[in-house]
Nucleic acid binder design. Sequence first.
DNA 1: TCCCCTACTGACGCTGACGTCAGTGTATGC
DNA 2: GCATACACTGACGTCAGCGTCAGTAGGGGA
Lengths: 223, 223
Amino acid sequence: MAAKRTSKKSPSKRSRKGLSKEERRAQILASARTVFAKLGYHHATIDDIVAEAGVARGTFYLYFEDKRAVFSELIDRYNSRINMAILRIVTDDPSRTVENQVIENIRGILTIALKERAMTKILFTDALGVDPDFDRKLRVFYDELVQVLTNSLADGQARGIVRDGEPRVLAYLSIGAIKELLYQVVTLGLTEESAEVLTEQVHAFLRDGYLLEPKKKPVKRRR
Amino acid sequence: MAAKRTSKKSPSKRSRKGLSKEERRAQILASARTVFAKLGYHHATIDDIVAEAGVARGTFYLYFEDKRAVFSELIDRYNSRINMAILRIVTDDPSRTVENQVIENIRGILTIALKERAMTKILFTDALGVDPDFDRKLRVFYDELVQVLTNSLADGQARGIVRDGEPRVLAYLSIGAIKELLYQVVTLGLTEESAEVLTEQVHAFLRDGYLLEPKKKPVKRRR
DNA sequence: TCCCCTACTGACGCTGACGTCAGTGTATGC
DNA sequence: GCATACACTGACGTCAGCGTCAGTAGGGGA
């Protein structure tokens, strides 16, 4: 193979509009996110996205296969951020209580979800029913989450940290509770500052439920 | 106004296919439900629905405005059935404990959701992002539910049956937990028989959460 | 100065789903 | 037997959104 004759001077060439390929790609991605959040995935068209990005229809197809592909990439990025926020709970470190680690995880998830408001909204509003392949992908991400939590709960039961009950069902209930809260919070437009107070409420809910036992006298558990 | 000359003999005239207008309408509705459950709302077409019903395209439009109208009607029926299952909790009747009434409500909701498997699935998979008008309608139904629960919780707190915490947040968490469980149960294909055991799990979750207090020794609360 | 390369453009043809409406077949009234 | 009514039919014109591709613009090397 002959050596390249023309030396590439700049690692990222600027187009006539002053954007490198990566920047253009990122720009289209961001525009798509905006449009999806505004119109919902199903009602968003390629024309809406390119209008938002200020490029021509053809340009979109230089960077992405189709609407599904952009959506898929957006979800991937979001998922990986959420996954990073979830830390496995360790029990052999006396300096970190299980309770604090649980709280940390709740806080981490809530914070990211609030930071990535647009994506959180899209995920909850439009993620299902887009396309069979796509549903499967989302399902895998979700099932992993359920599996991790289910295992943690079963483990916790064995060690007496978690009460009895079908661990998988408890996992669904917990995840559902957090999902719903997130959805409401994002839809109603609360900001990141709320993460702290929400964290406390979620933790208290998971720890205690909310129905007080009528037979024994209520125990004050909150500080 | 002149009296009608022709006496209507049969109250519901039979068409050439042997169905009254109400029956035909019901048949199309049922077919639409089947198709929505199979393909999802967004991917279902009028052609799919009429093929399922075994009628011509034009017939569909004799009974419904468009795809949205059928969907809307299906949701309305489902919603009213769920609403009927939710009974306001009374505290002045000594023969019925609050706990039992809570359990009754949980059981009622789960039973209907499992009976109306197809609709439950559709509602969770496709309900959002169909159309702005439609989203609003769903929102109203949902908000009412949240409001009822929020009020009940606040009331419960005042009477010492419910622990402290923002009632609205607790309402979101509870409803989210149940929603998620329902979704999973319907998607995974559990049958009506499971209603009883699920009811117990949900109730235990709402009552106790699942994290046992490390400081005090665990109390056996289950029968 | 010329020309090549490449990112970008947007009009175009295509497709699939929509809603319509003139026409068909059957039961009932006269 | 004829006419009228009525549920039903399905081919048809329309249209929104899609993906393409021949053409354009402009930066940079020779």
